[in-house]
Write a protein that binds this DNA or RNA. Structure first.
Lengths: 226, 226
DNA sequence: AAACATTTGTCCGTATGTATA
DNA sequence: ATATACATACGGACAAATGTT
């Protein structure tokens, strides 16, 4: 039997990583509510580890803006307000625009084909009101472009900002932000620009593709708050 | 004697913060060399604290890309290569362009006046070959715009990326990247666009103002490596 | 192959600081 | 103002993992 080398490069997850992943999930899906006070001792018990890895995880989450630690006083999950969508989306849109710009000259025809397939499937999912699948396909579309752009900072910053957005959708909209056909149209135009190796146009479409949903969601939240 | 209130809002720096600040300084100025292996125990001794705050600081530095921790194996300062300038500058240029775009409608006439003063002083410093002062004035110029943009993510990401650039200048160029009059010209055009509340033009000039030095430095490094 | 040396990872006790009564 | 309760910050000892002899 041929033994695959590096089948699982890292099955071992340290307690810190487990704590980090779980806490981040809990914050994003709202299990840990915005503004909620937490103590390392309680979290440690809930996670089945000691306080040290919990504290380390909390500090990383703080650097990502999910947790607020006041030295010697308290640790709490960061609050979020509807207007925060206007803070998170613009830098993400800008970084994603750069990703498209950088990916344009690098994309292979196979990758272009995959973008087309993802967008076609996305359209179908939207038409069938398959919201969850549409969201995943949209995510894959953007991740593929970000991967090709091959810039670790763009990758990391985008990931964090996307998590903040996902959190706001969970908390404010019960995760049901309806995907739009308009987004698919923007994707097609973006693909067209990428195929023609037109980085500026691709970047412009990418920026629109993030800023339009921002406006939609912000409008939704303003109405909901009335 | 009148006691000034809040003379120093936070004189108390935790051991973790002290360790973080010092280590970051040492990495940026090259005291801790790229690729150098470090042990928390040695650093703890050097900093006069225990391992815990050192480890916490190292983990934050890892999330910023300054340190690489391999579980159970070793901790080392991240290596840098000349081509890394092409990785760091583009996202910074893009985020700074967004900062200019967002600042445009928010800038007061006083702030515009300050930008003009900073740029005028910058020109003088360049002409007098006062490299260090020119660098500081340039930094102030960009920081002011970033502050006005008032976006915590743009602020934080920009700060980290700027530190990476400073590190590369220290390590590769002995910190002597000569400031250019061309940069001042771009600043004047940017100010003009900001005054006219033309966010797109201001963003375009900002992006140029970061990408041009990137090309200069990259060219310098390619020549130096020959 | 197995024991060793080194370094990181984890645990938990204690000190310090903050807020409340 | 003092004391008390509480949570975080720090320290040091032990455990686990890795690479080597």
């Amino acid at each position: 039997m041929p033994i695959p080398k590096n089948f699982t490069p890292q099955i071992r997850l340290s307690a810190k990583e487990k704590a980090f992943n779980q806490l981040q999930r809990w914050i994003v899906d709202g299990t840990l509510e915005p503004g909620e006070k937490v103590t390392d001792i309680d979290l440690a018990e809930a996670l089945g580890v000691s306080r040290t890895p919990v504290r380390e995880a909390l500090q990383l989450l703080e650097s990502q803006g999910f947790v607020e630690m006041r030295p010697g006083k308290e640790t709490k999950i960061t609050s979020i307000h509807p207007d925060d969508v206007l803070t998170v989306y613009p830098p993400l849109a800008q970084l994603q625009a750069l990703a498209a710009e950088m990916a344009a000259p690098l994309l292979t025809s196979e990758e272009i084909a995959e973008l087309k397939a993802l967008t076609a499937d996305y359209e179908l999912a939207v038409k069938h009101e398959n919201i969850h699948e549409a969201a995943e396909l949209d995510e894959h579309f953007h991740n593929l472009i970000t991967d090709v752009a091959n810039n670790p900072y763009v990758r990391q910053f985008s990931d964090v900002l996307q998590l903040h957005i996902r959190r706001m959708k969970y908390v404010f909209l019960n995760q049901s932000a309806s995907p739009k056909l308009q987004s698919a149209r923007e994707h097609w135009q973006m693909i067209d620009a990428l195929e023609k190796n037109n980085p500026e146009k691709a970047a412009e479409m990418m920026k629109q593709n993030w800023l339009r949903p921002m406006k939609d969601i912000h409008q939704l939240l303003k109405e909901g708050k009335k």
